[in-house]
């Protein structure tokens, strides 16, 4: 069974149709790269997957569970949307770290807030003492996990630094660790290196490459063609809100079928 099935997603803003029937599926452990010129709807697609936008048409299914089906007109409750979001993680183009928190606090904030809720539930059910014990155990786990993630993105020396004290590349690596801290099933990247100086893209791409494993599923929107070719199992080329072409990196980069893709690649590789 596929970990993710996206079926016929359509999304319009007013009269502009931004996504016009996007369908694809993803296996566990796969890395999907999405390429395409700007304005083709890549960001909107990732935002739909992360429930920052609601598709007008189509459905999203994760591990066999349909999270949203636009045909079903009942609107999702806020708590349902939250639960759906936990299947996905999103790394933004502009990092969006929380400036008032240190690296470690950025990474642990969401898990700690989630823990607060769980502790409240435990307290209700089994009393204060049990809840305190539960909190102490889980809190230690959260910090341990966070430190591991921070080490994995190579920022152990910066755990107590604030985002403004970091370079763009370092900030984006923190953002990756922060997304991983919620252990999403599928991690999405929206042009993670586009806001970086050229000399800083390498360190971020290396981190993403290092995440590739049999149990991490990723969707990476990128303009880095070399990277897409090297790391992706499959590549989607989007144009004007549709999937113009989909295939293995070899099919897409060596044997493009559509003239639009050929033109796009010529332009992208020239620059």
């Amino acid at each position: 069974m596929s970990i993710l099935e996206v079926n016929n997603i359509c999304k319009s803003f007013g009269s502009t149709e931004v996504l016009r029937g996007i369908s694809f599926s993803l296996e566990k452990g796969e890395v999907l790269a999405i390429i395409g010129s700007s304005g083709s709807g890549k960001t909107t697609l990732l935002r739909c997957l992360n429930f920052l936008e609601t598709p007008d048409v189509g459905s999203i299914t994760v591990n066999g569970e349909t999270l949203i089906n636009a045909a079903d007109k009942s609107t999702l409750s806020e708590s349902q949307i939250r639960r759906n979001r936990l299947h996905f993680g999103l790394v933004f183009q502009s990092f969006n770290l929380f400036p008032q928190y240190t690296v470690r606090q950025n990474v642990t904030l969401a898990p700690r807030l989630m823990l607060d809720e769980q502790v409240r539930a435990v307290k209700k059910e089994s009393g204060r003492a049990q809840a305190q014990k539960f909190r102490a155990e889980r809190e230690a786990e959260i910090y341990k996990h966070a430190d591991e993630l921070i080490e994995r993105v190579g920022l152990t020396a910066k755990v107590d630094a604030y985002p403004c004290e970091l370079s763009g590349g370092q900030q984006q690596r923190v953002a990756i660790a922060r997304a991983l801290a919620m252990t999403p099933d599928i991690l999405c990247f929206d042009e993670p290196t586009s806001a970086l100086d050229p000399e800083l893209t390498g360190e971020v791409l290396a981190v993403i490459r290092g995440l590739k494993s049999s149990d991490s599923t990723m969707i990476v929107v990128t303009h880095e063609m070399e990277f897409a070719r090297g790391v992706a199992d499959r590549v989607i080329f989007m144009a004007d809100g549709v999937i113009e072409e989909m295939g293995t990196p070899e099919e897409i980069f060596e044997h493009p079928k559509s003239p639009v893709l050929s033109a796009f690649l010529n332009k992208a590789l020239d620059i």
């Binding site: 992360n50 429930f51 920052l52 806020e78 939250r82 979001r85 936990l86 996905f88 993680g89 999103l90 933004f92 502009s94 969006n96 770290l97 929380f98 904030l109 969401a110 807030l113 989630m114 922060r178 997304a179 919620m182």
Partner: peptide, 17 residues
């Protein structure tokens, strides 16, 4: 910036969080 709200939401925080 809107990105601050979105970053929180995407991490599964509630509106009030």
């Amino acid at each position: 910036p809107r990105g601050q709200y979105e970053a929180g939401q995407v991490l599964g925080m509630t509106r009030s969080q």
